[in-house]
Each structure stands twice: as structure tokens, then as C-alpha cells.
């Protein structure tokens, strides 16, 4: 019985991570790809790890704290990497694909302000 639940959860997680890999192929620029990377992959890996946890809990009767720690770690670090990559890509100078961009003007002003204060 528990095997069925485990297999269904593993397959769901696998399909989610495959979809996000397809997103790598289809989406136009880094920022939209980072959407695919942070959301779908996190949920997919979470499904797989949870199913592993359930399997060892019900079949072998052992609660693996390491696995819980891994789940929490993935949960905490995935959004941080997404934010970091988007931010450093913008600072690196990759142009976003869309039209609306309210960040560019503010960043430019900020840069000018720091340049003036360092000169003075």
C-alpha cells in the first residue's frame, strides 16, 4: 500500500523537475528561466525527498532526521539562489526580455549617487 503512495509521489516530483528542464529550453531569458528553476524544481525535489522519508518511516520503521534536515535546507536555499542569480545577472548586464523595467532608472540614479559621494 505504502509503495503505491511512494511511487506516485516520486513520479509527480520527477515530472515536475522534467517540466522545469523543458522550461530551460523554451523560455526566452535568464529571469524567466529562474522562475522555472526556483519553483518547479523545489516542489519536485520536495516531493521526492518526502516520499523517501515516508518509505523509510513505514517500511523500515526509522525516522531519518538527516532527510528532514535536507528537506528544510532545500526549502531555505532554493529561493536564495533564485534571488542571487537574478540579481547578479542584472548587475552583470543581461537585458531582460520584457518591456516594463522599473529597476533600470533607479539603479542608474543609485550608481551616480555613490560615484558622487566617493569623489567628494
Amino acid at each position: 500500500m505504502i509503495e503505491i503512495v511512494v511511487v506516485v509521489m516520486v513520479l509527480a516530483g520527477t515530472v515536475l523537475s522534467l517540466i522545469s528542464s523543458l522550461g530551460f529550453l523554451r523560455l526566452p531569458d535568464v529571469y524567466t528561466r529562474s522562475h522555472a528553476a526556483t519553483k518547479s524544481i523545489t516542489l519536485g525535489i520536495l516531493f521526492i525527498l518526502l516520499s523517501t522519508f515516508l518509505y523509510f518511516m513505514f517500511v523500515h520503521n526509522q525516522v531519518s532526521v538527516r532527510l528532514l534536515l535536507g528537506i528544510i535546507f532545500v526549502f531555505l536555499t532554493a529561493p536564495v539562489t533564485g534571488h542571487l542569480i537574478a540579481r547578479s545577472a542584472y548587475r552583470f548586464g543581461v537585458k531582460p526580455a520584457g518591456i516594463t523595467d522599473e529597476l533600470a532608472a533607479d539603479l542608474e540614479r543609485e550608481k551616480r549617487k555613490t560615484a558622487e559621494s566617493s569623489q567628494a
Partner: peptide, 22 residues
């Protein structure tokens, strides 16, 4: 959110308009 993103990826025609706002 995962459902929304997945649906937008596997849709046959990509119809999105990304952007940055405050």
C-alpha cells in the same frame, strides 16, 4: 505557483510578457 509556471511552460504557444516592477 508551481502549477501556474508549469502550465505556462508546457502551453504549446509561449504567450508571456515578463517585466520588472516596484
Amino acid at each position: 505557483s508551481s502549477a501556474v509556471v508549469s502550465w505556462q511552460i508546457i502551453r504549446p504557444r509561449l504567450n508571456i510578457e515578463p517585466g520588472i516592477f516596484k
